[in-house]
């Protein structure tokens, strides 16, 4: 049995980690050329973060 160290991440850290991992996977699976992969991964990452932050601000007025 492997001992697991509990992870305590903030909302934004979780978002960034999620966006990085998924963007890299999307870029590698979706494109063949290394430069195209990098561009697609960067685009996906930016969209993940921007859309999440925009949705967060959009929901802020009804959060309390």
């Amino acid at each position: 049995m492997i001992a697991m160290v509990p992870l305590h991440l903030s909302h934004f850290q979780s978002l960034l980690l999620f966006a990085v991992i998924i963007s890299l996977a999307f870029g590698t699976l979706g494109r063949r050329d290394p430069l195209e992969r990098l561009k697609y991964a960067a685009w996906s990452f930016a969209m993940f973060v921007l859309v999440a932050v925009a949705l967060g601000w959009l929901m802020y007025p009804v959060s309390r």
């Binding site: 697991m4 509990p6 992870l7 305590h8 980690l17 991992i21 890299l24 996977a25 590698t28 699976l29």
Partner: peptide, 22 residues
């Protein structure tokens, strides 16, 4: 090989993080 390593690491990291975050 590139895709194999990326998929292995991406799924592995997500599982590790998910389990670590309980």
């Amino acid at each position: 090989w590139g895709r194999a390593v990326t998929v292995f690491l991406a799924v592995g990291f997500l599982v590790y993080l998910g389990a670590g975050m309980r």
